[in-house]
Simulated assay, not measured.
Amino acid sequence: MLDFLISDFTNSFSKVPVGAATARLTMAALLAGIIGFERERRNKPAGLRTHILVAIAACLFIIIGQELGSLEFGNGDQMRFDPLRLIEAVTAGVAFLAAGIIFTSKGEVRNITTGASMWLAGAIGLACGAGQILLGCLTAAIVVIVLTLLRQLERYLGTHD
């Protein structure tokens, strides 16, 4: 059991090398951050952190789709599973839950970053489920860094998301 888990954790990416995955996730965060910064400056409900989380999750969904596409799901007359349907199901289900925690109170939108982080957690769950635990760990680390650093920056600048 432990050997199996260790092999999943150390499993190299079959379609997307770890360096490429790191670059893709980081660029998604940076590019979405540009948009989020503009939204933040205009005091919009979805700001810097929210845009970054959504972009990282979308990037991870694509990488996981590529990884799942390389897995064997049966041959010939055997039942085949469509890996993209797995992603669609998780995305829709988690988005529904995330939307449920976002609400408006006294004219102010609340919990939108938490909703985005829930959606991202769904993507991380897909990564781990696909045996890409290293990719899930990489993504979680980037997200924690983004949330931590940006919260400190928001406190310094006196803004919030």
Rank of each mutant, 00 (worst) to 15 (best):
F61D: 15
I62G: 00
I63F: 03
I64E: 03
G65F: 00
G65M: 01
G65K: 04
Q66M: 14
Q66S: 11
E67N: 09
G69S: 12
G69D: 06
S70I: 10
S70P: 00
S70L: 11
S70Q: 09
L71I: 14
E72R: 12
E72Q: 13
F73E: 04
G74L: 11
G74N: 11
G76H: 02
G76K: 08
G76F: 04
G76P: 02
D77N: 13
D77R: 11
Q78G: 12
M79Q: 14
R80I: 11
R80M: 12
F81P: 04
F81L: 15
F81A: 13
D82N: 15
D82I: 08
P83D: 05
P83Q: 04
L84I: 12
L84W: 12
R85P: 00
R85D: 09
L86H: 09
I87E: 03
I87P: 01
E88K: 06
E88W: 13
E88H: 12
V90G: 08
V90A: 10
V90F: 09
T91L: 10
T91H: 02
T91R: 01
A92S: 11
A92K: 02
A92V: 14
A92I: 15
G93A: 12
G93H: 06
V94R: 04
V94Q: 06
A95H: 05
A95C: 12
F96K: 00
F96Y: 09
F96N: 00
L97R: 00
L97M: 12
A98Q: 03
A99D: 00
A99V: 13
A99F: 07
A99E: 01
G100L: 13
I101Q: 04
I101A: 01
I102N: 04
I102L: 07
I102H: 03
F103R: 06
